[in-house]
Write a protein that binds this DNA or RNA. Structure first.
Length: 699
DNA sequence: GTTAGGG
DNA sequence: CCCTAAC
C-alpha cells in the first residue's frame, strides 16, 4: 500500500476578485475566432469588479455563499449591465488584461455619467483616457466608430514591423549590440564574413535607428501580445493627456501609449514605455510574492527585447521559471485528457458555480459589504449587478498529508486553470434554470424584478463545455507541445503563442510577430488565484475521506513535482549564424567540451546553455546525415552541415574530449579540410584556441 | 558543475 | 528541450 493518506478538499469555490486572466497562450485558445469578446469582457468586468469590492470591503462572509444566499450589497462598484452589451465588448477588448475590466467598467460608467459612486476606487485606478474627454459620452462615441479603421491601420503597422523583424532578426541583434550593452553574439561579424551569412548584416538592416526599432518593436509587441486593438482613436487623447498619463504612471491601458506612438509618431525612449500594466501590477506584486512572479516576467522581458542574442538575465534560473503559458497547456491538456478518463466528476457538471449570489437593492445602495451580487432597479430602468466574486464550486482535489501548502496552492491553481483554461463564459441562472436566451432583455427574463433576485446567479461556464464530459483534476501525462508545423515558421524569437493569437484574432491577421511583451500578465493570474485561495481558506472545505470513491484524483506529489519543475523553455531554434558559430567553436574545441564551446561562442547568449549547444550539435550531426528533404526548420547551409560532419568525424575519432594531446591531428581519417581552413589549427591547444578566438567577438 | 545520451 | 546517470 503505497497509498498515503490524502486530504481531499472540496473546493467550494474561491473568490476571484482579480481578473483571472489567462496567459496569452491560453487566451488564444480560450477565445479563438469566436465572438466571445462580449462574454469574455463580461467576465472580466465582473471579476474585476468583484476584486474592487473585495478590496474595499473586508467582508468575508460570502465565501461559501451558495445559490440564494444573498447578503447585503456593497455600496460600491456595481456593474451596470445594460440590456445587451453595448459598449462593453469593444471597449473592453481594447484594454489590456488587468485593466480591462476596470476600464471597461469605467468607460461604461463614465459614459453614462451617472452614479459616481460606482466609480469608487476603480476610478482612480482606471485609465484616464476617457476622463480626458470632456463629455464622457463622447468617449464612447469616439471609440466605437473609430475602432475599425484603427484596427486596420494597426494591423498594417504590426504586419509591417513584423515583417521587418522577421526578415532581419540578426540585424536587430547587431543594432542592439552596437548600440547597447555588450550583449550579443560575439562572433556575429565573423560569421558574417565567412560568407555563410550571405549579404552582410549591415546591408540587410533596414532599421536605421536602434532606438526607433525598440520603440516600434515595443509597440508591436504590445499590440501583438494583446491581440487587442486600441480602444480609443488617436484623436481621443490629446498629447497632453498622454504625457500626464505617463507621468502619473497610472494604471491604464497600454494601448494608449501605443496609440500615441503610432498615431503621433512620438519618438520616445522605450524607457518611457514601461508598460502601464506593469505599473498596475506593482500593487499586485506587493501582495503576491511568488517565485513565479519573479522569474517569469523578467525572463519574458528580456527574451522579447533582445531576441536570441545574449540576454544576460535569461535562463539564469531555469528551475525557478514558471511559465504560466506552459502551465496552461498542461492544464488544458490535463483537462481534456481527464475529461475522458474520469468518470467521476470533479467539477460539478457544467461548472456552474453558484458562486455568485445576489441581492436586489432598491433605490439606494445598501452599502452593505458582503453581498455577492445585487440587483438594483433604478429610476432609469437600469438593473445593477454587483458581483463580488465568482466561485468555482465542486472542485475536488486530493493531496497527501505531507504535501506542502505550496503544492496545495499549485494544485488548486492548476485545477482552476484547467477550468479557466479553455475560457469561460458567464451564465445566468435564474430560479435554478439557466437563462440561455441571450437576446431576451433583463426585463423579459425577469431579471429586473425584485422577486427573482434571490434566485439569480451567475455562473462560469467553460466555453468549450457544450456537452463535454466533466472536468477532472488530475495529473495527466506530460504535455506535449503542438507540433511546430502548427506554428508560424516566422516566429523566430519566441513561440509564445502570439502567432496563434494573431491568427485567431478576428481583428488582427498579422501573420506573426516574434515579439511579445505581455509577460507580467502571464503569471499574475496564477499567483493571484493561488494566493487568493490561501487567503480565503473558507472556500476550502475539507471533504471527508471518501476512501475508494473514484474522485479522479491524482496524487499531488506528481503534480507538485511537475509544477515545481516548471515547464519547458520556449523553443528557440538556432539561427544560421548561431549554428555557424557553434560549428566553428566545435571545430576548434571539439566535442566534449561544451562548456568551453559555450564560453567561446555563446558566452553572451545566456539562453543557450552548453547543454543546448551539445544538443544542437547532436541534431546538427543528425541533420547533416539525413537527406535535405527530411530536414526541417530553417535550412542550414550545406556548407555548415558539411563542416559539422567533418568536425564531428574528426573529433569523434580523436578522443575529441581531450584534444589536449595536441597531436590528435595525426592523420585524422576524415581530416577536416575545412576544419583546417576554418581557422582552427588542429594542433591548437585549448588555450591557444581561445586566445585566438576570444578577441574576435569581443566588443 | 559537466558530460553524455536517452527521451 | 528535458532529464539523468555518471563523473
Amino acid at each position: 500500500m503505497v497509498c498515503k493518506k490524502r486530504l481531499e478538499y472540496g473546493f467550494n469555490g474561491f473568490q476571484a476578485p482579480f481578473i483571472p486572466r489567462a496567459p496569452r497562450s491560453v487566451r488564444r485558445r480560450v477565445f479563438p475566432k469566436k465572438e466571445d469578446h462580449g462574454q469574455v469582457c463580461a467576465i472580466e468586468v465582473l471579476a474585476s469588479l468583484a476584486g474592487k469590492l473585495l478590496q474595499e470591503s473586508e467582508s468575508s462572509a460570502s465565501s461559501n455563499a451558495s445559490e440564494g444566499n444573498h447578503q447585503p450589497a456593497s455600496g460600491r462598484g456595481a456593474v451596470e449591465q445594460e440590456s445587451q452589451g453595448e459598449v462593453k465588448p469593444l471597449v473592453a477588448e481594447g484594454v489590456h488584461h488587468g485593466s480591462c475590466a476596470e476600464s471597461a467598467f469605467m468607460t461604461e460608467v463614465v459614459s453614462r455619467n451617472s452614479n459616481q459612486k460606482y466609480l469608487g476606487k476603480a476610478e482612480t485606478d482606471a485609465v484616464p483616457e476617457c476622463t480626458s474627454v470632456t463629455n464622457p459620452a463622447d468617449c464612447c462615441k469616439k471609440i466605437d466608430p473609430n475602432i475599425k479603421p484603427e484596427i486596420c491601420k494597426w494591423e498594417d503597422q504590426v504586419e509591417h514591423y513584423s515583417n521587418r523583424l522577421a526578415e532581419a532578426p540578426k540585424n536587430f541583434r547587431e543594432s542592439y549590440n552596437n548600440s547597447n550593452t555588450k550583449n550579443g553574439f560575439k562572433r556575429e561579424q565573423e560569421a558574417g564574413s565567412s560568407g555563410i551569412e550571405g549579404p552582410s548584416l549591415a546591408d540587410k538592416c533596414s532599421l536605421k535607428d536602434p532606438l526607433e526599432f525598440q520603440v516600434n518593436s515595443h509597440a508591436i509587441s504590445n499590440s501583438a501580445s494583446k491581440t487587442k486593438y486600441p480602444c480609443c482613436s488617436k484623436g481621443t487623447f490629446p498629447n497632453s493627456s498622454f504625457s500626464n498619463y505617463v507621468k502619473n504612471s497610472k494604471v491604464g491601458f497600454r494601448d494608449d501609449d501605443e496609440n500615441f506612438i503610432r498615431c503621433n509618431k512620438i519618438s520616445i525612449k522605450s524607457k518611457a514605455f514601461k508598460p502601464p500594466h506593469r505599473i498596475a501590477r506593482r500593487r499586485i506584486r506587493k501582495l503576491v510574492t511568488s517565485k513565479y512572479w519573479k522569474a517569469a516576467p523578467k525572463l519574458k522581458d528580456c527574451e522579447l527585447s533582445r531576441s536570441d542574442a545574449g540576454a544576460k538575465p535569461l535562463f539564469q534560473k531555469r528551475k525557478a521559471r514558471h511559465s504560466f503559458e506552459r502551465g496552461h497547456y498542461d492544464s488544458l491538456f490535463k483537462r481534456r485528457k481527464l475529461s475522458n478518463q474520469c468518470s467521476g466528476l470533479t467539477l460539478d457538471g457544467g461548472f456552474s458555480s453558484e458562486s455568485v449570489s445576489n441581492s436586489l437593492e432598491k433605490g439606494t445602495d445598501g452599502n452593505n459589504p458582503g453581498s455577492s451580487s445585487k440587483q438594483h432597479e433604478s429610476k432609469d430602468s437600469h438593473v445593477k449587478f454587483s458581483i463580488k466574486s465568482f466561485k468555482i464550486p465542486e472542485l475536488y482535489i486530493e493531496v497527501p498529508e505531507t504535501a506542502t501548502v505550496g503544492s496545495l496552492k499549485r494544485t488548486v491553481m492548476e485545477a482552476v486553470m484547467a477550468i479557466l483554461g479553455d475560457g469561460v463564459h458567464v451564465g445566468v441562472v435564474l430560479q435554478g434554470k439557466t437563462v440561455r436566451d441571450d437576446n431576451r432583455t433583463l426585463q423579459q427574463t425577469g431579471l429586473s424584478c425584485e422577486e427573482n433576485i434571490d434566485t439569480l446567479g451567475f455562473t462560469l461556464e467553460p466555453s468549450s463545455l457544450q456537452g463535454s464530459p466533466p472536468v477532472c483534476v488530475g495529473d495527466p501525462p506530460s504535455y506535449h507541445e503542438p507540433s511546430h508545423s502548427v506554428r508560424s515558421p516566422r516566429t523566430p524569437v519566441l513561440d509564445s503563442g502570439i502567432t496563434d493569437v494573431l491568427h485567431d484574432s478576428p481583428l488582427l491577421t498579422t501573420p506573426s510577430n516574434p515579439i511579445e511583451s505581455n509577460h507580467e500578465s502571464i503569471s499574475s493570474p496564477t499567483d493571484m488565484m493561488t494566493d487568493k485561495v490561501a487567503a480565503d481558506s473558507k472556500s476550502l472545505v475539507v471533504v471527508p475521506d471518501r476512501g475508494t470513491e473514484p474522485l479522479a484524483i491524482v496524487p499531488v506529489t506528481q503534480k507538485a513535482k511537475r509544477s515545481e519543475l516548471v515547464q519547458r523553455r520556449t523553443r528557440r531554434p538556432f539561427s544560421v549564424s548561431e549554428v555557424e558559430a557553434l560549428v566553428q567553436a566545435v571545430e576548434e574545441l571539439g566535442t566534449g567540451r561544451w562548456r568551453d564551446v559555450k564560453l567561446l561562442a555563446f558566452e553572451n547568449a545566456d539562453h543557450r546553455t552548453y547543454v543546448d549547444l551539445k544538443d544542437k550539435w547532436k541534431t546538427l550531426v543528425h541533420t547533416a546525415r539525413i537527406s535535405p528533404q527530411q530536414r526541417r526548420g530553417e535550412p542550414v547551409p550545406q556548407e555548415l552541415l558539411d563542416r559539422v560532419l567533418d568536425a564531428h568525424a574528426f573529433w569523434s575519432q580523436h578522443q575529441g574530449k581531450q584534444q589536449q594531446h595536441g597531436k590528435h591531428q595525426q592523420q585524422p581519417p576524415a581530416t577536416p579540410n575545412k576544419l583546417i581552413e576554418s581557422s582552427a589549427p588542429q594542433c591548437l591547444s585549448v588555450g591557444e584556441a581561445v586566445g585566438v578566438i576570444q578577441p574576435v567577438g569581443t566588443m
